[in-house]
Amino acid sequence: MNGAMHVGQGDFAAALLDAGRECPRGLRTWNGSDPNARFAVYRNNVLVSLVDALADTFPVCCELVGETFFRAMARVFVTDHPPRARVLAFYGREFPAFVSTFAPAASVPYLADVARLEMTRLEACHAADALPLPLSEIAAVLATPAQLPGLRVRLHPSVAVLRSKYAVHSLWAAHQGEGDLSAVDPMLAEAVLVLRAGFDVRCVLLDPASAVFIDDLVHGAELGAAHHAASLLDPAFDLAAALGLVLQHEIITARLTGDHDHEHTC
């Protein structure tokens, strides 16, 4: 030991995430200049790289509130919720909940749900691969209607249903150049089916009952139970149309039978 001040990584890390703190003692510069100016490079690297990551994941949110507001909000999030994983792909899972409680964003009540949709899309983008159940298997299932109420299926790992009090699908679509943003009433409830077809992540607008139906399937419900829940919400629920949507997007990857999830896969 040379008697010099030891700089613990805990002190270093704490000062990185708190712009109000001095840099740790025990740092030196060759020209005797203030180490705080140089420490700011590390602090900036951490903050800017993580804010950039959030801006990449939530581009529609960024457009909705403007880049300046978004980046200021993201800086607060980064400081309060630094990543807990070394894989940054899914950084921001807590961002929608943060946005919903971020007072300066209260005038944009739908922002948190748009963030939820963007995070759901990211999860779908990187979800595990799975092949759709072959048409012959599907046909065999449909050929025995008596078994349909007890049928359980596994949907593609990318599939998720997002139900919102706000027009999240229309808001998102308008930012993809689909439709006119000024014509969107953000206060209308919408539900979205998110799925990955090939490498293409898609958002499909759902009626409320179909959203209940597919969401129940995602969570392993029997077809009959999902049908019942959807019909409770909307007596006019069209089972054939909802099943048609599921088949059209080829999101069934396995048929589950019995109590132990014995799978029939391709």
Partner: peptide, 17 residues
């Protein structure tokens, strides 16, 4: 370099003495 402290990942390559 180091880039983690506790369970926090700092996403930068930080110096060591």
């Amino acid at each position: 370099a180091w880039s983690t402290h506790g369970d926090v990942f700092l996403n930068d390559l930080l110096p060591v003495p």
